[in-house]
Structure formats: structure tokens, C-alpha cells
Amino acid sequence: MSNIEVIKKHALTGHQNPIFALERNVDSTLLFTAGNDKGVVEWDLIKGEFKRVLLPVKSSVYCLHRIANSSLLAVGERSGLVTIVDFEANKVVAKLIHHEKPVFGIQSFYSKPELIVSSEDGTVSIWNTQSFQRLYNFSVSKDTVRCIALNKEENVFALGSKDSKIRIFDAKEYSLIHEIDEHSAAITALCFSPDTHQLLTGGRDAQLNIFDPIDYHLVKNLTAHMFTVYGIVYNPELPILATASRDKSIKIWRAEDYSLLKNISLEKGYPVHRLSINNILWSSRNTLITVSDDKTVMVWEINIT
């Protein structure tokens, strides 16, 4: 893994304002994006082109999440509304009305029909994904609960808040089991490693922290970017991960020791975003997708030898 070739395959345009959220379908043929405009957009990833507006919305969308074991997409809005749309049947199946402030995080389980929703109101709500009835609601912080990460075993999940703290919850009882206070600013990205042996966290302090989930002690600290870390994602097949930032760069890291493999940035000569990169995902082994304040979706081919 000594050489990385980076090719920009597509620059998808059509959004009229900054893009904050992205998600894909199961086989990565479709991409969904949304942000500070009036709709959730569906793109054809095979052709690299606009397909349709999947869902008109009345307020900005801060998060998109495909519900596990389904063709349902959960759309979290600035208004606090979460709309559940079946993207195969092309219909709205439920509207989750509870939060009165923006929804920033949504996560679902494979092992049980439940959905976690986090909000600027500092609380988290739990919903049944079959009846779409609210099961629980609990307070987490006095500030925004920005992001959610569920580990592979689905026995614990982490919540990152504006108060710079990460709180670990039991996924069965929804009880608080640990609190981490290592960042100096709001938490903006969370990710468990695929083997669940590490919890990675990013914040507005530009730091990337790696914790051991046995007792959540800090294993490694990196100043990963110049500004806010908005995304941390592991490659689905290769031992690498990618981060994205407000500093307009994408970085590829070796998963084994977190050494930097590639800095994809304007300074390094890459045709990357001109403004903040707000979200990132791997759609396949060699395809990385980013969205930005510059209103553009970029699809990258990452070849590693």
C-alpha cells in the first residue's frame, strides 16, 4: 500500500445551496444528498448524473440515513421533523414528530427494529422502525447532540455533543456507561473501527482522537486537519480510512497506525472542493464521495497499490 492514485470521476451539480448530508442504497447504484435547499436529491452513481428529487422538504436537511434491512431513507430536518421515505416505492411512509429543534444524527440497528435520533435540543429519541412509534426519549446534554456511532456488535453507541464530550451508552438499556472529555471543542464526527477495537472522534478543534473501547482511554491524538473534522469513514474492504474537513481537504490514513497516506487538497494540486467539505462516505472499495458548501457532490476513484 505504497501508491495511491486519485481520480475525480464526477462533479455532480444541481444543488442551489450548501450540501450537508449524503447516503447510498445497498448496492451503491444510487446516491442521496441534501442540504440547505428544498429537496433530497437522488443521483445515478453508475451514470454519474441527476435522477430526480426524491423528497421535497420545507427546511434544511442535516442528516440522511438508510434504515438497516430496508429501502427506507430517514431524513432529518432543521425543523426537527424526521421523514421516512421508501425510495423504491417512492412514497413517504412516516413522519416522526417530536423534536422541536434541528435533527443532526440518525442511526439504526440491524439486530432490532429501532432508530436513534439526536437533536440540537440535547436529547435523543428512540423509535420503532416497523410501527414508527416513539419508544423512549432521554436527555444527553445541555447542548446539541451532533453525531452518533454504533459499534459492529450493536451493544454500545457513542454520542458526540457540542459541549465537547462523547458519551457512551448501552444499546440495550439506553443507559449512560461512560463519558469522555478529551476534545477542546464541539464533537463533529464519530466512528467505531470495523473490528470495534477503536473509537475515533473528530471535532471543531481539528483533532482526531483514537480511544480503546475497553475503558475508553486515549490511545492516540492527531492534529488531523487545520479546521473542523466533519467526517471519519473506514473503507469497506481495505485497511484505510478517510477524513474530511472544513479546511477543504480529504485525507487518507493507514488504519493500522494512523499514518497519513494521502492529502487530497488544493495545495497538493487536486481539483477538490473550494469550500468546506461537510460529509464523506465510501460507496465501494475504490469510490469515495464528498459533499460541500460549494454546492457540489464529488465522486472520487481511489486506486491503491
Rank of each mutant, 00 (worst) to 15 (best):
D143Q: 15
G76P: 13
V299Q: 06
H225D: 06
T123S: 15
T144L: 11
N278L: 09
E77Y: 03
K152P: 00
R78D: 15
L115E: 09
Y258T: 09
F32V: 00
P194K: 12
G76D: 08
L288R: 00
C63W: 09
L261G: 08
K38Q: 12
I177P: 00
T296S: 04
Y258L: 14
Q133S: 12
E182S: 13
R52Y: 10
K142W: 10
R146H: 13
N278P: 01
G76V: 04
S60P: 07
S119R: 06
V40F: 06
Y136L: 15
H15I: 03
E5Q: 14
E267Q: 14
V6W: 11
V219Q: 14
K152S: 08
S141N: 09
W127Y: 09
K248Y: 11
I148Q: 05
A224E: 02
E173Q: 12
D27M: 11
K220T: 06
E267K: 11
D27F: 12
A34M: 03
Q133I: 03
E256C: 09
E154A: 08
H225P: 07
A34Y: 07
G122E: 12
W282A: 03
L199F: 14
G203D: 02
A89H: 09
A171I: 12
E77N: 00
E153Y: 15
P239H: 03
G80M: 04
H197R: 15
D212R: 14
V117C: 03
I4G: 04
K142F: 11
I289T: 13
T29M: 05
I280G: 02
E77W: 08
S71T: 14
V219R: 15
S125A: 13
L81T: 08
Y136D: 11
G122L: 10
N286Y: 09
V299T: 05
N279E: 10
A185V: 02
N3H: 13
K248V: 08
D257R: 08
P239S: 04
G122V: 06
S259E: 11
N263W: 05
V82T: 08
V92Y: 02
N303F: 01
D257L: 06
A206S: 12
P271E: 08
I250W: 03
H65L: 01
I67D: 08
H98G: 07
T129P: 15
L260A: 02
D86P: 00
S184P: 00
D212I: 00
F138T: 05
T305H: 13
I168S: 05
T305E: 14
H99N: 03
L72I: 06
F50V: 01
N36A: 13
F227G: 00
L72P: 14
Q198I: 03
T129R: 06
N151I: 04
K47V: 01
S108D: 10
L199Q: 11
I280M: 05
V103R: 10
S292D: 01
S193C: 00
I84P: 15
L135N: 09
L288T: 08
S249Y: 06
P213R: 14
L22G: 06
